[in-house]
Amino acid sequence: MITSKLKEALICFRAGRVTLRYPFEPSVPPEGFRGQPQLDITKCLGCGACSMACPTRCIEVTNEAEQRRMEYCFDRCSYCGECAEACPEGGITMSSEFELATDSVTDLRTVAYLDLVRCESCGEVVGTAREIDKLAQELATKMNVAADSMPWLRWCARCKRESSLATAQVLQPAEAHL
């Protein structure tokens, strides 16, 4: 009994003081920590992949008349890093920032506006200008054509299909199984 208490005392005293005088001294997270996501809006294409991946719906994508509005509500963020993995441009990275307490929830929100491209024939949203430009450039390199020679890039999916169906023979359902 007494030896046991002495052993316990030994454990206690050998450890010394282990708590930090936080917040008077910093607490540094280890390498690879998933803290607040950092945005690099200059890289954002407005594709919304991050929004689709986000389990907590932090990232809201809405289309206005001429612009796409990307709202990053990191007050709801669960720091899973799915958005960073989903972003094709590497525009989101996980920082080591975790001291996010604030008086105003808007401090944790960022809104970005990106120019929209609407379908030249029906006015339906096609994508953001950055998305289309990027696509045009990649296609141009791959297909070895001029970037501005693909007007159909600025058509909506429905109009593209409409035009394809107009020229293609439509199979009846029964034939489709063959």
Partner: peptide, 29 residues
């Protein structure tokens, strides 16, 4: 409470490990 504090003190390096491996102490993702 002494056993509480000592047990949790010993636990802390494990939590640090989890953070090191996964990027978070809990909810490792």
């Amino acid at each position: 409470d002494t056993a509480l504090m000592q047990s949790w003190r010993m636990r802390e390096p494990v939590m640090w490990l989890c953070e090191r491996i996964s990027g978070n102490r809990k909810t490792y993702g």
